[in-house]
Design a protein around this nucleic acid. Structure first.
Length: 334
DNA sequence: AACCGAAGCAACCGCCCACGA
DNA sequence: ATCGTGGGCGGTTGCTTCGGT
């Protein structure tokens, strides 16, 4: 094509942030004349800017119908929904959100929504549940490992983080199932089934319409689950068995279902912002506490990082056995 | 109070496509 | 049919702000 850049040859054209004076010149000119040819506009408006820069400034910030301020919950949901259909077609998404620009939506996606979906265990590109262990690594395992290397821990905070990690682990594993297992089923059996059936996140060959529907319902339900760091201390996972947790998750209610006050869709601010994770390091006076463990209780989690390439039931079984302290809080009186 | 790293966001860059000559 | 131009788009950069130490 060989098209020359629109402004490069214009030596001395100003770049960088716009001043209020420049904004006024641009707004006044467009109000009076319309923008016409963007390439000719700067000269006509008395601006030492490239036409493209003027267009961007107008369409993204100076247009009178621009809506500023925080995105509402509804807007967030709509963006996520549209992104799942349209992908990174920000301009198409923007047409469904009056007053919002593609640039604003794109920035909001990259800085907030993308992380939020990751925190929920949803792949922000495919909008499918993530079943790989990178999910755990991204969501919270590094925090735990960092804490494990610390010489002094806030035990309650660690317990909360461990609970959250356990929840996240189960959340990821449960997504591997093609159909919800019955309540009260043995966790080890579930894990074995998951690893036997594959954890690709794609419908297994031979999946029936009913199974696919169940899968979708399960997926939809998971979208409403709290993210790792949004589990408040007062409502952290109770000391329940993994099987109970499984059944609670899969029944759509239980410990984490809708209306329990833990859902990420209900925060004081009205947004879906995550609550900050609790501090992992204890106050100074607690550092001398004799009950601080001498060895890390996170060995099982550390081993998680070595399992990326070996998805087999034996690996999972070994891992879960190593992490038995996670599944039995009574053993974990640190 | 000063410093530093992380996060947020405005703006830029370069590619692509539609359209008219 | 070809080429040049205008404009749109997604990705990226870098500055500013904020929060923690």
């Amino acid at each position: 094509m060989g098209r020359s850049p629109c402004c490069d040859q214009d030596a001395g054209v100003k770049k960088g942030p716009w001043t209020p004076e420049e904004d006024k010149l641009l707004v006044d000119y467009i109000k009076e004349n319309g923008h016409g040819s963007w390439r000719r506009l700067p000269k006509l408006a008395g601006l030492n800017r490239c036409g493209k820069s003027c267009r961007l400034r107008w369409t993204n910030y100076l247009r009178p119908d621009i809506k500023r301020g925080r995105f509402t919950d509804d807007e967030e949901k709509l963006i996520i929904h549209l992104h799942s259909i349209l992908g990174n077609k920000w301009s198409s998404i923007a047409t469904k959100l009056p007053g919002r620009t593609d640039n604003e939506i794109k920035n909001y996606w990259n800085t907030h929504l993308r992380k939020k979906l990751l925190g929920m265990g949803i792949d922000p590109v495919t909008h499918r549940p993530r079943t790989d262990l990178n999910l755990l690594a991204a969501a919270g395992i590094p925090n735990l490992l960092a804490a494990a290397q610390s010489s002094c821990w806030d035990i309650n905070a660690l317990r909360l983080q461990a609970d959250a990690a356990k929840f996240q682990l189960l959340q990821g594993l449960l997504r591997a199932f093609s159909a919800p297992p019955a309540a009260g089923v043995d966790l080890m059996a579930l894990l074995a089934a998951a690893t036997t059936n594959g954890v690709s996140g794609q419908p297994a060959a031979g999946t029936t319409a009913t199974m696919a529907q169940q899968q979708q319902q399960q997926y939809d339900g998971l979208l409403n689950l709290p993210a790792l760091t949004s589990v408040p201390a007062a409502t952290s996972l109770p000391a329940m068995s993994s099987s109970l947790i499984c059944s609670g998750l899969l029944s759509g209610g239980g410990a984490f279902g809708g209306g329990d006050g833990v859902s990420s869709s209900t925060t004081a601010s009205g947004s879906n912002m995550m609550a900050p994770p609790p501090p992992l390091v204890a106050a100074k006076e607690q550092c001398n506490n004799d009950s601080t463990p001498a060895s890390s209780p996170f060995e099982g989690l550390e081993n998680l990082n070595n399992l990326e390439d070996e998805f087999n039931s034996d690996s999972w079984r070994d891992l879960l056995e190593q992490m038995s302290w996670l599944n039995n809080p009574n053993e974990q009186q640190l």
